Amino acid sequence: MYSLYSTSHENPVSDKIYRREFPCDLFKMKLNIATDETKKFALETERDAHLLAADMAYNEKFDKNTSITDKKIKCLSFDLQQCLPTPALQSSVAFYKRQLWTFNLTIHDNGTGMSTHHVWHEGISGRGANQIASCLFLYLKELPEEVSEVILYSDTCGGQNKNTHVAAMFTYLLSVKPSIKLINLWYLVIHIWRWTWTMQL
């Protein structure tokens, strides 16, 4: 599967990332070809544990209700949308031509239901950790001064969200925006992870 994927994409992710990002499909394929009942049972147990972890992670978003009533807490979710071809044409000839990719990082305020979109194209910049950190920084530094705690949810994409660039940005943000005292970043895919930044007084 990875071989077929890598030959059909211009910039394929590594084998490691591919295997990490498609665990549900992997379980399904392994179960379809499993003939030994003991191995099949082990796969089903592992799959169920994976699905339970995903459900638990989703249900951890209890901070949404808190942020609705407490204006000192801001609960946000962010994700990079699938790349958008520009222009978006239906012509098959245009589809196979080299198109300009447009990126959109959406930051959703779970308390108010409002979303902010940071949009740029590949002629301006890429879609890596620095770009994600920059968008988050621009958004967070404009939060009202009454906000002292920020809770964020994202997936575990290492190239964009779960990396030292984003971590360093949060550390820097605490120094330039002293009204924010605590930042929690929750990762909701595969396992429940949490990183915390706090201003040392």
Rank of each mutant, 00 (worst) to 15 (best):
S3E: 13
S3Y: 10
H9T: 03
E10R: 13
E10I: 13
N11Q: 11
S14H: 06
Y18K: 11
Y18E: 00
R19Q: 11
R19D: 05
M29A: 10
N32H: 06
A34Q: 06
D36Y: 08
K39E: 06
K39T: 05
E44M: 04
T45P: 00
L51N: 07
M56D: 14
A57D: 04
F62K: 12
T66C: 03
I68K: 14
K72W: 00
K72T: 11
I73C: 09
I73H: 06
C75Y: 12
S77E: 08
L80T: 09
P85W: 01
A88W: 01
L89E: 12
S92F: 02
K97T: 05
W101R: 09
T102Q: 04
L105I: 01
H108S: 12
N110A: 09
G111N: 14
G113C: 01
H117Y: 12
H118D: 05
H121P: 00
G123N: 09
I124E: 12
R127V: 05
R127I: 08
G128I: 10
I132L: 08
I132T: 15
S134D: 12
C135I: 11
L136G: 09
K141E: 15
L143F: 07
E146S: 08
E146P: 01
S148P: 05
E149I: 01
Y153G: 08
G158A: 08
G159T: 12
G159F: 07
G159M: 01
Q160C: 07
N161R: 04
K162Y: 12
N163I: 10
N163F: 11
N163Y: 11
T164M: 13
A167P: 06
M169V: 08
T171H: 12
Y172P: 02
L173D: 13
L173R: 13
K177E: 05
K177G: 09
P178I: 07
S179L: 04
I180R: 15
L182C: 02
I183V: 15
L185F: 08
I190K: 15
H191V: 14
H191D: 15
W193H: 05
W195E: 13
T196E: 05
